[in-house]
């Protein structure tokens, strides 16, 4: 779990975009851990959300993830 969390953070910190889809994050993690299952990555991402490190960004119809404090404020503009 800790390794997956670190891989997610590496992906989030090095991503060119401040917000990204779960699927892109999953692929980023699987570059480092090819055997990592989607469910394990989701659990690690949920733990990071609960710790306040990652945040959700929602348009209402679809949801993305982002690193708290990196490029996203409460106002969507």
């Amino acid at each position: 779990m800790e390794e997956l969390k670190k891989a997610i953070l590496d992906f989030a910190e090095n991503s060119k975009k401040s917000k990204f889809y779960f699927k892109d994050m999953e692929k980023g993690v699987q570059e480092k851990f090819p055997d990592a299952k989607m469910r394990e990555i989701k659990k690690a991402a949920t733990a990071l959300i609960n710790e306040g490190v990652l945040i959700f960004f929602s348009t209402g119809s679809s949801t993305m993830y982002g690193l708290k404090g990196r490029g996203m404020t409460e106002d969507p503009e």
Partner: peptide, 11 residues
């Protein structure tokens, strides 16, 4: 519309 507002832990 959209943004980061929400309930803690809920997506």
């Amino acid at each position: 519309h959209g943004g980061i507002v929400g309930i803690m832990g809920y997506g």
